[in-house]
């Protein structure tokens, strides 16, 4: 039997659960304008998975990369949820991300 497939499925559950955690924290401390950075990080991990020869490790990297790309699309909605009072809102100003002027011109993606 192929137990590795099931292990990858369970890993995806864990990494998506971790995604909920970091999205809430990142929005609270940094703000949704940082969304391109987890997205680029996720894309980078998926690209890296192409160069890992073992299919199991490559699969785990692919799942991890996709979860970071998804997390990046959640940041904007998380900011709105915090504004609506559904989550704790950080009242302090948040640090500007590098290339903030450019990021502001791009509509933040969401699912």
């Amino acid at each position: 039997m192929m137990w590795e497939g099931l292990a990858i499925g369970l890993f995806s559950l864990g990494i998506i659960g971790f995604g909920f955690f970091w999205v809430i924290r990142m929005e609270y401390y940094l703000g949704y304008l940082w969304w391109p950075y987890p997205m680029l990080f996720g894309i980078g991990i998926v690209v890296l998975s192409l160069f890992v020869m073992d299919s199991g490790w490559s699969a785990l990297l692919g799942v991890t990369g996709a979860s970071f790309i998804w997390g990046a699309t959640e940041l904007k909605e998380q900011a709105v949820r915090a504004e609506l009072g559904w989550f704790r809102r950080n009242p302090h100003p948040k640090p500007l991300p590098p290339f903030a002027a450019l990021i502001r011109k791009i509509k933040a993606p969401h699912l």
Binding site: I8, S12, I16, V46, L48, S49, L50, F51, V52, M53, D54, S55, G56, S58, A59, L60, L61, G62, V63, G65, A66, S67, I69, W70, L111
Partner: peptide
């Protein structure tokens, strides 16, 4: 030669999450 396992799993994960939201 490139290992495409990660790419397929990334697609499956992202589309599953997308469906989990929109669907």
């Amino acid at each position: 030669m490139l290992q495409t396992s990660g790419l397929w799993l990334a697609l499956a994960t992202f589309l599953s999450i997308w469906w989990g939201h929109v669907g």
